[in-house]
């Protein structure tokens, strides 16, 4: 399989001071679903921002489709990689369809605005995701989970090769978290390459075929969730003892809990 995203011997520092992390290597193939876990402040969002093209590495390289990320123009990058940031409210009540249609921006020249074909495509994607009923509703008045789905639909409008998700379920309630995770699983099942950061270890088992555990200074372990998600590795990652349970109802389902007595 061709490598879609490759992070090679990467190190990062803010303004040339101490490295946040060093010698990070990560290779993502077409169709992979990668979940990056780590404690607060370990630098996983920084790594995310480097792959998103927002930050530059101090050392090493990031290649996308075999080409250094720095060689991509901002529009080219937007056509190749879609980014779903955490949902947030907006100042103006655009309709959800209008927000989804913004995903066509990288395909429009400076003087162009979205055509009827762009609107139809946006609506088609919303229909496919089962959120067509939100099309005419103001984006500012739908629930947080629905907003996240609208942002995912917008990213699909960019027809990217991979989608990055920055903690896609933070701030969401239980059902909305499930809704978003189901959408991610569906996307992954259809062959979309996904990279997500998360605070919930459960997400690694739920959606990823490649899990990355990050700690202070770099990657602690990476591999399939079955290889990586051990009590020992999670303890290193989060600095707390962890018990991992296998569900009695479903052999493939795992969940973990911290050792409360240690805290």
């Amino acid at each position: 399989m061709a490598k879609l995203i490759e992070v090679k011997d990467a190190s990062f520092s803010y303004h040339g001071k101490d490295y946040i992390w060093q010698n990070v290597n990560l290779s993502v193939e077409q169709g992979d679903s990668v979940c990056i876990l780590g404690a607060n402040g370990c630098g996983k969002t920084t790594l995310f921002n480097c792959i998103a093209g927002n930050f530059q590495l101090a050392k090493g390289a990031i290649n996308i489709d075999g080409k250094p990320i720095g060689d991509y123009s901002i529009t080219e990058l937007a056509k190749t990689i879609g980014i779903v940031y955490q949902e947030h409210s907006v100042a103006f009540p655009y309709t959800s369809l209008e927000v989804v249609r913004m995903g066509r921006t990288p395909y429009l020249s400076a003087f162009q605005t979205p055509s009827q074909a762009d609107t139809d495509m946006a609506y088609g994607i919303m229909e496919e995701m089962g959120i067509a009923h939100l099309a005419e509703k103001p984006y500012s008045r739908i629930s947080g989970g629905q907003r996240q789905l609208v942002l995912i639909a917008r990213t699909l409008c960019q027809t990217p090769k991979a989608i990055l998700f920055d903690e896609p379920t933070s701030h969401l309630d239980f059902k909305n978290q499930a809704l978003v995770m189901k959408t991610l699983k569906n996307l992954s099942a259809k062959g979309m390459t996904i990279i997500m950061t998360s605070h919930s270890p459960a997400h690694a088992w739920q959606v990823s075929n490649k899990t990355v555990l990050m700690g202070k200074g770099g990657i602690i372990a990476q591999g399939t969730p079955q290889q990586v998600m051990t009590a020992e590795n999670l303890e290193k990652t989060y600095d707390v003892r962890v018990k991992i349970h296998r569900s009695e109802l479903d052999d493939a389902a795992f969940f973990c809990e911290p050792a409360f007595e240690d805290l």
């Binding site: 998103a52 927002n54 901002i74 990058l77 937007a78 980014i83 940031y85 995903g103 917008r154």
Partner: peptide, 8 residues
């Protein structure tokens, strides 16, 4: 940040 991710 979002606008940049949309190629603007």
């Amino acid at each position: 940040r979002e606008a940049r991710s949309l190629g603007v």
